[in-house]
């Protein structure tokens, strides 16, 4: 129990530092950045303590906001995907989730990618709509969501592949 808490704390801090020190400054093709910290919310172990999970997601988003001077946009997007995660889990994994026996290391790769896609695109859509905050720029919101989403998805998949091989 203690071991998982420590490892999650390290993950949390490492993801925040990686995001703000490296990934926020990639600016691929001008303004495309990946938001890898979403993977923390995706792969957080499923248990019954949803309150702690939602609060942790909020804290994660808020720390990114603190560094990137963006108000509360990351916090709002993170807390929303944390709240609706059970629905997406049920949609993607079906019966395994129902029996509460799901382990992210064991699930089918295809189902996992679809799960990532849904979470990442919902997160990015909320993020960019709040950041741009202007209905007349809706095309810009969709464009940024699509390109950043693909970039984030790529990084998320690569990260999971790398870290699952080690063990």
């Amino acid at each position: 129990m203690n071991n998982t808490i420590i490892s999650h704390t390290i993950q949390f801090i490492a993801l925040v530092l990686l995001q703000v020190a490296v990934l926020n400054h990639i600016n691929f093709l001008g303004d495309i950045n990946p938001y890898l910290y979403v993977i923390f919310i995706c792969l957080f172990p499923i248990n019954n303590n949803r309150i702690a999970f939602i609060f942790l997601s909020f804290l994660l988003g808020l720390s990114i906001d603190l560094f990137s001077d963006s108000g509360g946009v990351h916090a709002a997007a993170s807390v929303t995907i944390a709240f609706i995660r059970p629905v997406i889990l049920k949609f993607c994994f079906g019966s395994i989730y129902e029996h509460q026996t799901i382990k992210f290391k064991q699930v089918d790769f295809g189902a996992k990618v679809i799960y990532f896609i849904i979470i990442i695109f919902i997160h990015h859509l909320i993020l960019f709509s709040l950041e741009i905050f202007n209905l007349s720029n809706i095309l810009l919101v969709l464009k940024k969501t699509l390109f950043s989403g693909i970039f984030t998805l790529l990084l998320c998949v690569i990260t999971t592949v790398i870290f699952s091989r080690k063990k």
């Binding site: 939602i54 909020f58 906001d65 001077d69 108000g71 509360g72 946009v73 709002a76």
Partner: peptide
């Protein structure tokens, strides 16, 4: 969830 969302929206609007 509603409370935290509200809080982050307040921060967003302030920014």
């Amino acid at each position: 969830y509603l409370f935290l969302l509200f809080l982050s929206l307040v921060f967003t609007i302030q920014s």
